[in-house]
Design a protein around this nucleic acid. Sequence first.
DNA 1: CTGAAAGCGCTAACAA
DNA 2: TTGTTAGCGCTTTCAG
Lengths: 354, 354
Amino acid sequence: MARASARGGGRPTTTTITDVARMADVSPTTVSRVLNGGYPVSAETRTRVEHAVRELSYVRNAHAQALRIASTGLVGVIIHDVADPFFAEIVAGIQEVAATGQRLVVLCNSLRDPGSELRYVEMLRGQRADAVILAGGAIGDPHYQQELPQQARWLRRQGARVIMCGRQMADADAVLPDNRGGAYLLGRYLLGLGHRSIAEISGPPDFSTTDERSAGLDEALREAGVVRDPHLTVSGHFSRDGGYDAARVLLRSRSRFTAIFAANDMMALGALAALREAGLRVPDDVSLVGYDDLPILRDVVPGITTVRVPMREMGRRCMRLAMSATRRAPRRETLPVELVERESVAPAPARQQV
Amino acid sequence: MARASARGGGRPTTTTITDVARMADVSPTTVSRVLNGGYPVSAETRTRVEHAVRELSYVRNAHAQALRIASTGLVGVIIHDVADPFFAEIVAGIQEVAATGQRLVVLCNSLRDPGSELRYVEMLRGQRADAVILAGGAIGDPHYQQELPQQARWLRRQGARVIMCGRQMADADAVLPDNRGGAYLLGRYLLGLGHRSIAEISGPPDFSTTDERSAGLDEALREAGVVRDPHLTVSGHFSRDGGYDAARVLLRSRSRFTAIFAANDMMALGALAALREAGLRVPDDVSLVGYDDLPILRDVVPGITTVRVPMREMGRRCMRLAMSATRRAPRRETLPVELVERESVAPAPARQQV
DNA sequence: CTGAAAGCGCTAACAA
DNA sequence: TTGTTAGCGCTTTCAG
């Protein structure tokens, strides 16, 4: 039963292709050919090899294989945070497709730290990942902005594909939601209901997502000839607490507004809590909109009006790009977003309040 | 500038330790020693090597390294579903600790399919993962029940640690929440408020989590001398929709109950929606409890009473076990759970309703 | 303090 | 149809 059958507790022992070859009484090459298929091997030999493989519970050493051939079957995925449902959904989509293609996903949480993101890219270079998917808005940090494209170039030189999810980079494939368009839609919607004093809870500065969504709102406002009061914009972390804090700042300020535009659903959730604590009713006293349409929104009362971002589909598409062999000019897929009306918005009162 | 500087688009090119050695005018051995430290190298030589490494943006080939030494720095994590906040939190805890230890996490979604879980374990064996963390309740499938311990044995023989998160297995380390204890707590709580007809929305059959939580409720009920009506137990998927469907079955049946015990928060959320649709108020008409205390519960109205499972801490502990070198007898850590009272439970009315 | 040589487990020429 | 040989990039004796 070869050396692999040594009892546990001792020195680590692995079964190699040679053990299998010995047991099946063939050469390692033959075993390799049976394992890989696509090469003529007599039925009888094949059976013996397959038997030995099963008997020894042999699994190919992926590292030895990677050293010899190009592909490793590993795809690196760098996100901001798995605990954020937005990213969890994207990862779920990625995994879905990865499973169909026998790929393994190396998941990295950058927690929005540029340095950590860069470090992960390096580690993934070391792993010779077939592809690296970078998800989430771009970070404005100057060193990062300069370094990341460099690293991406090294990745490509190694033969790895680089796919951006939710943001762009020169020479890289990208799957993008229409952030600007969705925010514009939301802006028009609020405007259409008579809102003129719209407070914005924006994302952290230096994030591309923040800028794009703000720009969409701006556009709608400008188009309607509404001038924005700078006091009506407060930025915060892309999280429930970020939204909560921002809403409190807004409430403490003397500014008047009839609606709040939150940069994403988690922030909207936080804002909703702050509003509730302040004794304000949504939408009776203030209207509120979010962005993303996280699955959990189905279970929040009142239902929050938002823009649906096809997170899971974005993940799927990224993984498909990651698995596609063809590497011509960078491909860019923009996914449409869609307004989801729920109960958090009411027509603006004749006289603005709050 | 060595061969690595070839322009992109051509054949994949990687920089090897030999390229660095050539540039620094030393042997590969010396480069290796500088990279690994712990071996005397003259300051001057070290500087030259470090310069070359930076210049060429050299990153060690993890596969070549893995082939030579024991550790790969890879930890496999098999969960049911990242899109489920319960698992997302666990993974977040795992990542937190992994980052401090320079480990890379290979994340696998089994979607509760025993076959897929087994396939992932094999792939992780092939990757020579340093450790494999299996999270989520055990699946009752007979073939799986027999096969998994086998695979775990092979993993250990290879020198990999096996850590169970939320369930047990012979010879494996485990981090466990007190499922039974928490359910017992919840049962006592409902009983204390006068509830006698408690409907149970249990998890899918053949899952250890399902059994443990049901057992805890049973115990409280038995202790109070309450006999259970089998019609009052409906099982469903561990998901929002599973809870929704189960609640509808319950509502359609003629059974009477004053409270619902859902096997986890996602199911409770679904049940809440079904109740709302049926025009029933929580807790006025029916009381409802969940399990886990998912972060999102903060934002659901009415607040759902539940038991807090320290998901993130479980993840952290699993990763610590995965990184700990010592491998003596299996370690088992049981984490306490805690009742979280919110607004979804009211005293039972004198006469039972619904 | 530095280097030459061997070998981890696998696959791809090449030969038979 | 099968086997022999060489080598992927690294670390580790063993020599110097």
